[in-house]
């Protein structure tokens, strides 16, 4: 997924759409907005980032999971099989993005890129609801996918690349 930080206005629509689409329990969220302000008046810069699980290529949560509940599904989406999760918290400790949380029902929960929608050829709920169209989803290996086209002529960065997880959320700058 690519997030256009120049277009994001921090409205939190993606957060609400996710909570509604995925029945996220009250007080929890699978995605969130970070507001970054830097500089000194009058030279001040503000950046909004819609963040969620980075669906890392080298996912530490998958590596640390003692039961195999955390796994990488075909296509690269990192998922948790609820019936295999013992709720030990190892994956939560291992995530440099703090993208996971213990669901009140016991298992560990996180962003699934709305895999139930993606399987039907639809976008994740956050992508479809975004009023500024700042979220771009798709297959990075397909040069004509929405995400590939969005990244084509833009500078981008990922969060905490030094953690070595090969994150798959690209922030366009």
């Amino acid at each position: 997924m690519a997030i256009d930080t120049k277009k994001c206005v921090g409205c939190s629509d993606c957060v609400v759409a996710c909570q509604t689409e995925n029945n996220v329990p009250h007080g929890y969220c699978r995605d969130w907005i970070v507001e970054n302000v830097s500089g000194t008046y009058p030279v001040v810069e503000m950046e909004f980032r819609s963040e969620r699980c980075n669906h890392c290529d080298n996912a530490p949560c998958v590596r640390c999971c003692p039961t195999g509940a955390s796994h990488i599904a075909e296509g690269g989406i990192v998922l948790v099989t609820h019936d295999e999760c013992i709720g030990c918290g190892a994956c939560i400790e291992s995530c440099p993005y703090d993208a996971r949380y213990p669901h009140p029902d016991g298992y560990v929960d996180k962003c699934t890129f709305c895999i139930h929608r993606v399987e039907k050829g639809q976008n994740p709920a956050c992508v479809d609801v975004c009023p500024t169209h700042c979220l771009h989803f798709g297959d990075l290996e397909d040069p004509n996918s929405d995400v590939s086209l969005a990244m084509k002529d833009r500078k981008w960065r990922v969060l905490a690349p030094e953690a070595g997880t090969k994150p798959q959320l690209y922030f366009l700058m």
């Binding site: 939190s12 007080g27 969220c29 969130w32 907005i33 970070v34 970054n36 500089g39 939560i92 949380y101």
Partner: peptide, 23 residues
């Protein structure tokens, strides 16, 4: 200055403001 905040609000039990999943 440099400031980073959760604009959408985020206060997940055991996760925010500091991770506290293992007791």
């Amino acid at each position: 200055m440099k400031e980073e905040i959760f604009a959408s609000g985020r206060h997940i039990p055991h996760i925010d403001p500091y991770l506290n999943i293992w007791h």
